[in-house]
Design a protein around this nucleic acid. Structure first.
Lengths: 232, 232
DNA sequence: CGTTCAATTGATCAGCGTCAAACTAGGTGG
DNA sequence: CCACCTAGTTTGACGCTGATCAATTGAACG
């Protein structure tokens, strides 16, 4: 690993509080690598050799079964993925593929487990990260079971808006067909869902989103922190 | 807490490896209580005051939104629930209700966090438990997105069979309408799904399940450890 | 024996997927 | 610079899955 990458990694919440010695042990066998788009980083079912941390770009987590595929999550900086598999030393439950050019830190799972056992501050950070991941999957699952696809889209737009300068005018950050899969529908259906939201003041032209009347959309979407607040 | 309950709790994976002192700190402010069926133990959105451990009975985790409700999970001994909320000191994402008469250990969340910070063996156990929970939600989510309701039912039956003496002849452990909600369908639809599986050798009379031809059902259900193996 | 609630059944309907075709935009090479 | 190619998106037609509504049957319990 190039030493110029270290400071950036060191300040991530996951690594911030650990001892210098533990950090050194952790990154000794690690890499930072930049991948082009559409590269499969890990494959569902494989052994979890590395803990991955994305520090730039976008990665999608994909699950497959019986010829079917679905996007389970979109991971963006700065966060880990497949932490649970690393901890449990169990096979990956999802594949990971870069969507855009992405910079990824890879730390040998074995080292992560070893340092976890020695460094309490790191252990604390791992647990917090895991708890956040767990809750995010639960929220996702609630959305899937309790909402229709149009409701999921409406809440997705409201949620993404929160991360933009202008909540009423921004660009989609992923292709529509990936978004469709993530939201649990087909691309065709996403097109129609977008039309369905037009009476609520939503227009999407290409990747450009316009929300004419936020409160109108909110009345329809009924967002709740217990599903839609990522930090809750 | 009655001291007669302690040995039983002490031997749970979560508490087995911690120091005597930490264990004492943990249970000092805790209770063991037996609840009748249909009692709401915790409510979605409330602050997480206690970590719950079920040592007898059945508890269902329920999520609601906009007048709709769904069973997110059925928890049976011996496991914790809502560990993530306790760790993060965040609101519960799900409600919990006893299905049958259940014996529950309740440990103050504050104490759990305090002991977690001091006792490394406990921290290790918490992380393992969290990782298991995380992976189980991911598997669930995969089933929801990748399988039809009949496929989910078929795999559910195969999975439950593994915990019975006779994989081909056992009883459902929950009411059908709860099972329906858990599997993401209506009770009416579950009835029909059961009929759909008849050609594959499945009969369900009341709560009694008969699987005439296991391999036939498996050919249809296509179970995979990456969705259906709870210990994977 | 009657009350109550779950389970089933049938009829109907909405949501969503599938298939096919048209359209669009971005990139490539002549 | 333009024609062309490719891949994503949109649209329409159609059908399946599963939800809803209503009515009936069945089982548990006082």
């Amino acid at each position: 690993m190039r030493s110029s990458d270290l400071p950036e990694i060191r300040q991530l919440a996951l690594f911030r509080d650990m001892s210098d010695e533990s950090f050194a042990d952790l990154v000794r066998g690690g890499y930072v690598q930049t991948f082009p788009p559409q590269v499969e980083l890990i494959r569902e079912g494989d052994a979890s050799d590395f803990l991955h941390v994305i520090i730039d770009g976008v990665v999608e987590l994909i699950a497959g079964w019986n010829e079917r595929q679905t996007v389970m999550a979109m991971v963006r900086p700065i966060s880990t993925f497949i932490l649970a598999a690393t901890i449990k030393d169990a096979p990956y439950l999802m594949s990971a593929r870069t969507v855009e050019k992405s910079r990824i830190v890879m730390l040998p799972s074995e080292d992560v487990r070893a340092v976890f056992d020695r460094d309490h501050a790191f252990a604390r950070a791992v647990v917090t990260e895991l708890a956040v991941c767990y809750r995010s999957v639960v929220k996702n699952s609630k959305g899937l079971k309790l909402r229709t696809s149009v409701e999921r889209l409406a809440n997705y737009l409201l949620r993404q808006g929160l991360h933009e300068e202008d909540r009423r005018r921004f660009a989609l950050i992923v292709e529509k067909r990936r978004l469709a899969s993530y939201l649990g529908m087909t691309p065709e259906n996403l097109s129609r869902a977008i039309k369905t939201l037009e009476p609520y003041g939503v227009t999407i032209d290409g990747a450009d989103v316009f929300v004419r009347d936020l409160s109108n959309l909110e009345r329809f979407a009924k967002p709740t922190p217990l599903i839609d607040d990522p930090s809750c």
